[in-house]
Structure formats: C-alpha cells, structure tokens
Computed example of a mutant assay.
Amino acid sequence: MIKYIYLLFTAVIFAIYYIFFLPPLFSETLTLFFKVIPMICFIVFVALTDRGSNDAYKKWLLIGLIFCTIGDVTLRWFIFGLSSFLIGHIFYIIAFLQIKKVPTPKTATLLLLLFGIVICGWVVGNIIKSGDLLLSVAVITYIAIILTMAWASFQTASLTVIFGALFFLLSDSILALNRFVTDIHYSSFLIMSTYYTAQILFTISVSKHFANRKKMLE
C-alpha cells in the first residue's frame, strides 16, 4: 500500500477539488474528466497491488471499479449509467464472496431489509406516480442489488469493506431521494463525498487483503 500511496493521495486531492472547488461554468466534458480522475487512480492502485497476482478478490473488485467509472461517465443517460453501476455492484458482490468469513448477522440483514422497504416505497412510489413503469422496475432492481452488495459485505468481516458498502448505500440513497422525491441541500457534496469514501475504502481493502494473506503464510 505504501508503495503506491501517491495514487490514493492524488485521488483524494482531485476528489476534494471536484466536490468543493470545481468551477460551475466548466464544460460537461471537463467536469467529467475531473470526476473520474479519482476513480482512475483507484483502478490503477488495485491493478498494481501485488501485480501479476491472479487473486479472485482483486480481479472482481477491479472489474467493479471499472464499471462504476463507466457509470460516472454515463449517468447523464440515467438508465445506462444506472445499469453500469448495477453491474459494478454485482462484481462487488462476487468479490466479497471470495473472502467470505462469516454469515451476515441477522440484525444487519433485518436492518438492511427494513431500509430497503422504506427507501423503495418512498422513491419508487414517487416514480410510479409519474407513470414511468420502466424506470420503476429499473430502480427497484438497482435497490435490490445494492442492498445485496451491502449484505454481502458483512460476510467479509472486514470493517473496511463493510463501511465502504454502507457509504455506497448512503450515497445512492441520497441521489435517489434528491432525484425522485425532494431537493436535498448540499446533495452534490453529500453524494460525491460518500461515493468517493466508499470507493477508496474498497480500494484500500485490496491492499489489506494481500497483507492479511501474507501474514497467514508466514
């Protein structure tokens, strides 16, 4: 991790710039450029970590990061962007199952289920009122997948992974509420700060995974 720490430092700097200091009059292309730089740093960091390894956790999480980056770029076409993030979450689920250590606690399962019911009823209820049934189905599917991703994260017994998944769930929930229910003050800050936090935690988890594996082999 220390070897490539400059990539994480670069990601944090650009994330802070994008969230707090990016001029509002920038072109859409330039805005997207600054938005994905942190993600590119995360992808390169994971790719370089234990380079040459065919480790399943690293491979699937890396693919998840790539699809989330595609989602960042294409979210202006909402369904396409949503589909990219959905695929990314599926790969995160696969990654987490590679390092499964414990069953998901029943309390966590119940709380995630209750949260899903509330957020789904709130968000999808508003979409159905608009008459867009296709979008309703897409959002229901997405909510189910991201809740499954959060549920699977608990099976890793890694606080880094669990908090990453919960931050991602929070980010997407704020985005959905802001887009379909009501305007949320400082929504852009809340969405992107929790999103980047989730992705950097997932990225760090790869380095921690290899460190733990080496300790076990010593």
Rank of each mutant, 00 (worst) to 15 (best):
C120Q: 11
A11H: 00
I119P: 07
T107F: 15
I79T: 14
I117W: 13
A56E: 13
G52D: 10
Q98R: 14
T69L: 15
Y142L: 04
L25C: 11
F34L: 07
D72G: 07
L48A: 04
A108T: 03
L30G: 05
Y17G: 00
F33M: 09
I140L: 15
T141Q: 03
A95K: 04
I79F: 13
G125V: 13
F67Y: 14
I99F: 14
W77G: 01
L61K: 08
K101I: 09
L111Q: 03
I119R: 04
F20L: 15
Y92C: 04
P23G: 07
H89V: 05
A144Q: 08
L75E: 07
G71Q: 05
Y17E: 00
V36K: 12
V118T: 11
F34M: 02
N126A: 09
S84W: 06
S130R: 11
G88P: 01
F9C: 13
Y18Q: 07
I70D: 03
V124E: 06
I140H: 07
K129C: 10
N54R: 15
I93G: 05
T141Y: 09
F96G: 04
A138V: 03
I43R: 00
C41S: 05
S83R: 05
F9R: 06
I40P: 01
S84K: 04
V124H: 05
K106N: 12
G52H: 10
C41V: 02
V73E: 08
F45H: 02
A56H: 14
K101Y: 09
V44I: 15
I13Q: 00
I66D: 01
T109M: 14
P103R: 13
V73Q: 10
L25M: 14
L133A: 13
K129L: 15
L133H: 14
I66E: 02
W60L: 06
A56R: 14
A47W: 12
N54P: 03
N126K: 15
V124F: 09
F78W: 10
I127M: 00
L82K: 07
V44H: 07
P38M: 00
A15K: 00
L86T: 12
L25I: 13
K58S: 02
F115K: 11
L75D: 08
V124P: 09
L30W: 11
V12C: 00
S53C: 04
Y18R: 05
W122I: 13
A47V: 03
F115T: 10
L97K: 14
F45C: 02
I40E: 01
A95Q: 08
Y142F: 11
F80G: 06
A47D: 00
C41K: 01
L61P: 03
I94D: 04
A138K: 02
L62I: 03
F9L: 14
L25H: 14
V123C: 10
L133V: 15
Y92K: 10
S83P: 08
F34A: 01
F20Q: 10
